[in-house]
């Protein structure tokens, strides 16, 4: 039982580390990449807690959907915010 807890502890530490990094990184584009890694760590945590169904949805949401939404929003905001910038030249 104690050794089973070791897997959970490792995953918890990884989740805490990546979540701290996600807070510490300030730029939204780079934050999206950290959030993808946080989603992976959370999926691993759910798996070792014997919840693979939750981990499946976490994989889909955390590793693809959240970064996609953030990156699309950043793209749209940049276009709207700097119409004469390098985005308008393309």
């Amino acid at each position: 039982m104690v050794s089973e807890d070791l897997v959970v502890s490792v995953c918890l530490v990884l989740v805490a580390a990546s979540a701290t990094v996600a807070v510490a990184v300030r730029e939204p584009v780079r934050q999206a990449l950290v959030l993808a890694v946080l989603g992976l760590a959370l999926a691993a945590l759910f798996t070792v807690l014997q919840a693979p169904d939750v981990a499946l949805s976490q994989l889909a949401v955390g590793s693809v959907l959240t970064p996609l939404l953030i990156l699309l929003s950043v793209r749209k905001v940049r276009r709207r915010g700097h119409p004469t910038g390098d985005e308008a030249q393309r």
């Binding site: 580390a17 990546s18 990094v21 510490a24 950290v34 890694v37 992976l40």
Partner: peptide, 10 residues
Amino acid sequence: GLPPVIWGVA
């Protein structure tokens, strides 16, 4: 495996 990944992504 994951700590170098977290460091690299940060």
